[in-house]
Computed example of a mutant assay.
Amino acid sequence: MESHALIPRWRDHLAHGRRRSAHTVRAYVATAERLIAFLQDHRGGAVDAAMLASVEAADLRAFLALRRGDGIGNASAARELSAVRGFLAFVAGEGGAPPRLKGPRVKKGIPRPVSPDEAVALAEDVAGQAREPWIGARDWAVLMLLYGAGLRIGEAMALTGAVLPLGETLSVTGKRGKTRIVPLLPQVRTAIDEYLALSPHMASKDQPLFRGRRGGPLSPALVRRAVQGARGRLGLSERTTPHALRHSFATHLLGRGADLRALQELLGHASLSSTQIYTAVDAAHLMDVYRNAHPRA
């Protein structure tokens, strides 16, 4: 079967056969298209099911090397490899298996904030493992909210339908009942809107915004377990937790010139001393850049 016919079947398999989220379907289909384009150049000639069945570990290493050249990090490379394996297994059917290739690992060391690349890969992986599309959309929305707005997981779980319709800002109640206003990125608003469009549960003003499978409040423990599984699949540090996404939000804002007082307000810290921890984290990151880039470092 020619590659132009395989892609629609792969998309249908993911969306209906595996009931993957819309985000995962888009990501996995894009990976399959990149692999086919690579093989057309790498192997020469048209790519069909027979050629895909003959793909070897060396071909996948070359593909990942090309993607590395595009600038993707370890987490995205691991995600790409997972998608490739799934596509090749789908094409091979029950009678075959994709070549075995060890995925990239993140070096262990001093804890560092989750990079934007890793945050998105983590959220995509968690969403992709969901049993139903609306649950995948929910998990994607939750993790994007933690990373994109700096919420604590408990704050996200405490949101109700009263925050709807979403605007450019969100009112959040944090520790000691303190309320703060945080900006909502368009991508975060879109993620929440897509979840609500798929959710079978009504988003009434007195009910939790994020619901479990049976309609009750979503448990933070479920989110933590999902993140734990994803970080293992992606080779991320054990320090990669839902709360680490909040830390990354703060560190990345500080690195782009955010004022400490403004950051204190966004995070809902009672004192500036709680916020100042991020200056040390950012300094550590700057030292990494210095050591890697300076000719005399």
Rank of each mutant, 00 (worst) to 15 (best):
R233G: 00
A75G: 01
T279Y: 01
T241F: 06
P113G: 15
A297H: 08
A156M: 14
R67D: 11
G167F: 13
L266G: 08
A58G: 08
T241N: 08
R246S: 10
D288Q: 07
V227F: 05
S248A: 15
P242C: 13
L263V: 13
Q207K: 15
S3P: 01
V29E: 13
L198P: 02
L60F: 03
A58W: 01
L286W: 00
A5K: 10
W140Q: 11
L164H: 12
W134T: 04
R291Y: 06
G148W: 11
A58P: 05
M1F: 04
Q187C: 05
G255I: 11
R180F: 12
R68Y: 10
L35G: 08
H247Q: 09
R214I: 03
E238V: 00
F90Y: 11
P186R: 15
V163S: 08
L286G: 00
I192V: 14
P208M: 10
R34V: 05
P220Q: 01
E80Q: 01
A203N: 09
R233S: 02
R296S: 11
T251K: 02
V114L: 14
R18A: 02
S82Y: 01
R176H: 13
V47F: 05
G268W: 12
A53R: 13
Q129H: 13
P113I: 15
T169R: 14
R152V: 13
G128T: 02
F249K: 03
K108D: 07
D259E: 13
A149Q: 06
G96H: 01
I135P: 09
R213T: 07
G229K: 14
A57M: 05
A270Q: 13
R34T: 14
W140F: 09
A83P: 03
